[in-house]
């Protein structure tokens, strides 16, 4: 089976039943960091601990930039080009979902891909809104708050509040899907996201897992982007309309 995004570099197809390395370490670390960060961000916002909230938000920014870079340069199962599919593929996958078993998919299935993209987009949007937001009293503000006027900042703050509900909804769908796969499809998705490995009934082509050096490089780049944002994104002001 020759899937796009898989590569013969790791050589042989896995033997039937032998675990296949599916998710590399960076994917798993980023995923579980999201799981820890999201409730922490909610809690710090809820309690008005905005100092910590903003710092955690910057960690979230680093993770999101990293995940986007990893979607371009990472292992085959991390790459957007490898798993993001068109509506036809999604439709075909949906029809097959309740029918006979199709060919095993190594990595995100076409439907799961939508969930990955939606969550990444929403989290990214939420972080960007937070960068411009401030509290009512002007005591705490995101690092880019000074780039926009009072009314725009108020709108960003308002959307930042609404955005969390949207994220909650998509996380809810994500968790329901995992429960569906576990109970109806008898497919445990959580285990592989922890160990990185999964057993397939039929032999499959092993994903191409890239070196951790590449991840270190992407992390340095993401850190750099966050550092630039933290210092108020010098140079960006020219691109924005002057504050009203």
């Amino acid at each position: 089976m020759a899937e796009p995004g898989t590569d013969a570099m790791n050589g042989a197809s896995a033997d039937s039943g032998a675990p296949v390395k599916l998710w590399d370490l960076p994917i798993r670390l980023v995923h579980w960091s999201f799981v820890v960060l999201l409730p922490a961000l909610w809690w710090t916002a809820e309690k008005g601990n905005l100092d910590t909230h903003i710092k955690l938000g910057m960690v979230m920014l680093i993770l999101i930039v990293f995940r986007i870079l990893w979607g371009l340069f990472g292992s085959s199962t991390a790459r957007f080009a490898g798993f993001v599919r068109g509506p036809v593929a999604v439709g075909r996958y949906l029809r097959g979902l309740f029918g006979r078993e199709g060919e095993p998919i190594v990595g995100h299935n076409p439907l799961g891909a939508l969930s990955v993209v939606a969550l990444l987009l929403l989290l990214g949007l939420q972080v960007v809104l937070g960068l411009f937001a401030s509290d009512t009293d002007g005591l705490y503000y995101g690092p880019l708050n000074a780039l926009i006027g009072y009314d725009a900042a108020e709108t960003a703050t308002h959307l930042h509040h609404l955005g969390f509900n949207l994220i909650l909804a998509v996380v809810g769908i994500h968790i329901l899907a995992i429960v569906f796969y576990l109970t109806v499809k008898r497919d445990n998705l959580v285990g592989p996201m922890i160990t990185g490995r999964k057993r397939y009934a039929a032999p499959v082509a092993a994903p191409r897992i890239v070196s951790l050096w590449r991840a270190a490089l992407c992390l340095v780049l993401a850190w750099g982007v966050a550092g630039w944002v933290w210092s108020g994104a010098p140079g960006l002001a020219m691109l924005l309309p002057t504050p009203a």
């Binding site: 401030s134 009512t136 002007g138 000074a146 006027g149 009072y150 900042a153 108020g232 504050p243």
Partner: peptide
């Protein structure tokens, strides 16, 4: 709020 933000922006 606008006045307060204007001051805060200047001080940054």
């Amino acid at each position: 709020g606008r006045a307060s933000k204007a001051i805060s922006d200047e001080l940054r």
